[in-house]
Every structure is written in structure tokens, then in C-alpha cells.
Design a protein around this nucleic acid. Structure first.
Lengths: 188, 188
DNA sequence: TTATTTGCAAAGGGTTTGCACTTGA
DNA sequence: TCAAGTGCAAACCCTTTGCAAATAA
């Protein structure tokens, strides 16, 4: 269970190993926890869910689980290292499976339109590990968030073109909805 | 106003330049905005304030400004590039001056006790720039957040030792309050 | 003059919690 | 059996907003 130095702590859980991991701490495997793990395990690689999205998916699946249990479960699993908690710029957290071969992606966000681009970069991961080792800590996860202005916003003359009512962050969301694209990064 | 490629967008404002920048967009220089800029400009390097902390400081200074104005102002200044918006793991945003020579620090957080260590690392900044250039975007800021388990939590056998009531994130805060230390990183 | 900004109080959105009931081990 | 987990509704915290009064340009 203890990871080697210079390696991230990460587990690969099945329903069975989840049960023993939970039980070893006096916790229990419930149908809700098993279902939630399953949703994440069948989620396409690179996808991540907010608590609310997860709640909706469970409802659509015909296996409704209360929002509070969803929140409690994702938080539990994040602390256990099963899930990865993402802090995107959207004001609420997202979760994804923290598998044995995690998709260590980072995010590039346009502060004008919230457009998000995911990318991978091993060098950043390595720099992070270096810092963690120096501090004598154990890495769980490492995320670079880059705040940018995208070409469209630049073309509109940022910041001069900011609409006078931009203070309501939703008023500019229409410019380009929080859509997601991906670019790959061959180790750059 | 347009930054060169491969360089971050950043400004250095005085009360005067703040006024013209504001006026050029049909906005106004108010005593509140001037005071708030001043607070950030006299803040020790590396410090950052939440809206509430800023509000308190203003009150102590004998220049009270309503919380809503504080929120509106820091958001305005962040969008203008005057302030840097930090997303720490504490659930609320912090702001600091985005000066011409910013303190590009990153954060290492223990998910058990919320202990935070700040560090600098130019290589991470450069990797971020590389990604931004590739996407054709313009960098505003770039923050690495590393989630870790600190030695104390490891010693207690994480995750086995997680108190049964940790689900309330405040219940474990007493273990080690969100205190802040700094380590320097000679480019590692 | 008049559109912008302020302060207040109320509303919002995501998240957490108290409590009685249910359930896993 | 009985501590842990669930669901519900209410509470929370940080943040945003509607509106009338104040104010910068």
C-alpha cells in the first residue's frame, strides 16, 4: 500500500479490492459505492464528472443515488486515491478514475470564454515529483492549470472588448460554451 | 497591450495608469478601486488575499468597502490583468498583484491536513509556455498544484488512519491548520 | 447630466450536515 | 447486533445580483 519514493500513490480497484480496502478501515462496501466506482470505470478515458453529472447519470441508469451520498462517496474515493479530484476553472470539482496508468493531463483554460484544452507533459510531472521528493512528501496527483486568452478573445482586442456586463461571468459564456477539445503532446 | 509571443501578458499599474485604462473602457476610477489597488501594492511579496481578507484589511485601515464591491473589484482587476487569481485547495479564491516580475509560485498541498508549501520552478513555467504557444494562445498565468500526503500523515498510516469523521473536511483541519511555509527551488 | 458604481440585503450555486431510518459485516 | 451509510431537507459558505442612492466624468 505504501508507494516507493519518487512514485505516485495509485491503486487499481475492483469491486473486490474496494471491499477489502474499505473494510480494512472499518468502512463498508455498499451498492452505492460499487455502482459509483463502476460508472467511473466505464467512463471513456479522459472524461471527468462533477458530482451533479454523476448524480444525473446514476438516475438515467435507473440506479438513483442521493446527491449527498454522491458527494460523500466521491470525496471518500478521492481521499482513498481511487478518484482524482480536478479543480477546473468552472467553480465546481470534477472527478475521474485515478487508475494504475492515469491520464496525467493538465489544463489550459481561456479566462474569456472558458474553453479548455487538455494536454499531457511528462516533464511537468517529473518536475512535480522532484519537488515532492524534496519536501519528503508522497505525490498523489499533480495538475498544471494554465490561464490564457485564446486567439478569438485576443482578436476581439482583449481586454478592451470586454462587454460592460462581463462581471456576470455567465454573460460571456455564450461566446464559446465550455466546450472541450484535446491536443496530444508528444512529450514536447 | 498586446504581448509578444512566448511572454505572459502582464501590466504594471499606477493610480494614474489605472485611471486611463479604466476610462478607455468607459469605466471609472473610484476611491474604492484606488484603495484596493494600493492594498495589493503594499502587500509583502508572495502574499495573497481572499476577498474576505481584503475586506477585513480595508476595515482595519479605517477605509471600509462593502464586500460586494470588493468582490466586483478583484474580479474586474483579475480580468484586466492587474491581479492574479489563485485557486488554492481551500475552496475560495485568493488574489495577488500580477506585477511585471511576478512571483510564479506553485503549490504543494497535503490532502490530509491541508498543509501548503509554495515553491518556484522555472522549468514548469517554460513547459507551460510551450503548451500555450503550441495552442496559439496567450499565457496569463500558470499554476501547478500538487496533491500529496505529508510525512506526518504517512506516518499515521494513510489512508488507514483517516478519522472516521474526516468526511467533514474541517474535522481534520485541527491536525495541522492551513499553515504556510516556503521552500525555495534553485531551478532544480 | 447621466451612465457607472456603491452598499445593502436577498438570492444563488455548489457542497455539507443533522437526524431518523436502513443496512452491511 | 450495532456502528456505518443513506436520503432528505435544511444549513453553509462563498459569491453574485437587484435595486435605490451616490458619484465620476
Amino acid at each position: 500500500m505504501q508507494a516507493l519514493a519518487s512514485e505516485a500513490i495509485m491503486f487499481s480497484y475492483t469491486a473486490g479490492s474496494l471491499k477489502s480496502e474499505l473494510n480494512s478501515k472499518g468502512w463498508r462496501l455498499t451498492p452505492q459505492r460499487e455502482t459509483i466506482l463502476q460508472v467511473f470505470q466505464t467512463l471513456p478515458r479522459g472524461n471527468h464528472l462533477s458530482a451533479e453529472e454523476l448524480h444525473d447519470i446514476l438516475g438515467q441508469r435507473g440506479e438513483p443515488i442521493s446527491l449527498s451520498t454522491v458527494y460523500r462517496t466521491v470525496k471518500l474515493m478521492a481521499r482513498m486515491g481511487i478518484l482524482r479530484e480536478l479543480e477546473l476553472a468552472e467553480g465546481h470539482k470534477h472527478y475521474e478514475l485515478n487508475s494504475a496508468s492515469p491520464h496525467h493531463h493538465h489544463h489550459l483554460v481561456c479566462v474569456q470564454c472558458n474553453r479548455t484544452i487538455e494536454f499531457e507533459n511528462d516533464s511537468i510531472w517529473k518536475q512535480g515529483l522532484k519537488q515532492v521528493d524534496r519536501a519528503g512528501f508522497q505525490m498523489i496527483d499533480c495538475q498544471l492549470t494554465i490561464y490564457t486568452i485564446c486567439p478569438e478573445a485576443l482578436r476581439m482586442g482583449w481586454p478592451a472588448s470586454v462587454p460592460s456586463h462581463w462581471m456576470c461571468s455567465r454573460s460571456i459564456a455564450s461566446m464559446e460554451p465550455t466546450e472541450k477539445s484535446e491536443i496530444s503532446s508528444p512529450q514536447s
